[in-house]
Amino acid sequence: MSPTTTASPPSTGRTGDRIFSGLSKGAGIALLAIMAAIAVFLTARAVVAIRANEGNFLTTFEWNANADPPVFGIAVLLFGTVASSLIAMLLAVPVAVGIALFISHYAPRRLATPIGYVVDLLAAVPSIIYGLWGALFLVPRLTGLYEWLDQFFGWTGVLSYDGSPARSLMTVGILLAIMILPIITSVTREVFLQTPKANEEAALALGATRWEVVRMAVLPFGRSGVISASMLGLGRALGETMAVATVLSPAFLINLSLLESGGATFAQNIASQFKEAGSMGRDALIASGLVLFLLTLVVNGAARLIIARHKEYSGAAA
């Protein structure tokens, strides 16, 4: 073979390399540019509104952004968003981990595959459909449960109930739990399936039962995966708009009794008020959107911290 023919393939390869590296670099820069554009837009508009605000942005319990002078605060929104998302996490994570374990380690294959499909299908349902289902099906059926909860746990204050329609933060939380179930389940299932066979066999050979194998090898291996999956779910719960707006009967107040209607969330509040808002009203809503953005950022950062702390013990080192 002549030297020219051996030299030619690398040269075309280099052109391909240049094109590919240019493309990937461009994509990376575009992503940063979009993030920066969003951040700049949100901050610029938010600053205008916060400057004009006569109330305290963090502690005021009302939202009169269209009034002159505008008075608004995010306390109610923050409470509603965090409360409903926490309820959703508390309900969804254990169930999702259970389903994922069942699919990955307990169910026979002919059962595991269809269940996996159904779970993935849940993720494909549009959120407005969840909202309609929640408002028309779930709300009337939850009053009974809430009365029961009130009877036994009403003394806590958090679970007391006045018999109003169940368009409350608790109902929103339950609905959000169903909505974030598939994403948490499918991510944790993938992680559990990647448990090294060698570790499962090690546990079995020590005389571990199936549950003990799960506890010794599968759950510790999957812990950081479960945390990331939960954070993905939490991200969705924090930002969910249509389903919340359809189910919740909003009221701009903090009602510590989570079963009773009232409350508001960031995304729901923006969706409900945006159309009727004037210029200042819109800027105020954008300011609240910025807070939601920061909240999601903090949640993700916290998740990364938790994962990093366990890195030494992660399966990646094996």
């Binding site: 090294p196 060698a198 570790n199 066999e201 090690a202 546990a203 079995l204 050979a205 020590l206 005389g207 571990a208 010794m216 090898a217 510790p220 291996f221 812990r223 366990h310 013990y313 992660s314 399966g315 080192a317 094996a318």
Partner: peptide
């Protein structure tokens, strides 16, 4: 049975999380 008959495998497999 497996509690009375121990086993060591081809590839070392300590539990990575422990």
């Amino acid at each position: 049975v497996r509690r009375t008959v121990g086993m060591v495998f081809q590839r070392p497999n300590p539990f990575p999380t422990m």
